[in-house]
Amino acid sequence: MNIITKPKTKVDTEILEQILTEENVERQVIVKCYLENGPMEQMIRIWQSTFLIPKESSDKSKLLNADNITFFPFWTFIKPKQKYQFTLIFEGLPRGCKFFDLIEEIPQSGGFSITNIPRNQMDVYHVQI
């Protein structure tokens, strides 16, 4: 009679610990932006050089994707008196971050700049542009 035994495997606890830590979980930050347009048509767009910048460090969380707004060089047209919403998705912020800025670093005036946004546990934010 043949007895089949399973081979013994050894788990590298250091690698297992690294896999299970929060640092390896892909974190993202979602920023929902709201714009109430005035009496005239307006054009908006987002540049890839838009970042979340923690107050506690010089690290920058990169913009990964955007929904309902075009990327430079294209424009999104907003009708007069229209309430408009778009969403920005960024890389995760550092664990110790308590406040951060949303900054669009562009070579012209008119970039988005919202400062001192308090961090929350969900990493989902609502900002008025």
Rank of each mutant, 00 (worst) to 15 (best):
V124D: 03
A66Q: 05
G92I: 02
K98V: 08
D101I: 01
P107Y: 10
I103K: 13
I53S: 05
M122I: 04
W47Q: 11
I53G: 01
I89N: 03
F100G: 00
S109W: 12
R119L: 11
W47P: 04
T87I: 09
M40C: 15
Q42C: 12
R95S: 13
K81I: 03
N68K: 13
Q121R: 06
I117S: 07
P73K: 14
I53V: 14
N120P: 03
L88V: 02
R95N: 14
I46W: 01
F90A: 04
S109I: 14
L102A: 02
N120V: 05
S61W: 01
T115C: 04
F86A: 05
I106D: 09
S61A: 15
L88A: 03
I106W: 13
I103G: 02
I46G: 00
D59S: 15
D123M: 07
I44T: 06
F90D: 01
Q42E: 15
P107N: 14
K55P: 03
G92P: 03
F71A: 13
A66N: 10
E91N: 06
F99I: 05
G111T: 06
R45Y: 08
I78F: 07
I89Y: 09
I103Y: 13
Q82M: 07
M43I: 08
G92N: 03
L52N: 00
F74V: 11
E41N: 13
C97E: 08
C97W: 05
Q121H: 05
R119H: 04
M40E: 15
K62N: 12
K62P: 00
E56M: 08
Q121W: 00
F51I: 03
A66M: 06
P73L: 14
I46S: 01
T50M: 02
P107W: 04
S49F: 07
F77Q: 12
Q108C: 15
I106R: 14
S113T: 07
T87R: 03
E56I: 08
F71P: 00
L102F: 04
F71Q: 08
I78N: 13
F72W: 15
L93C: 03
W75R: 15
F71C: 08
I44C: 06
I46T: 03
L88H: 02
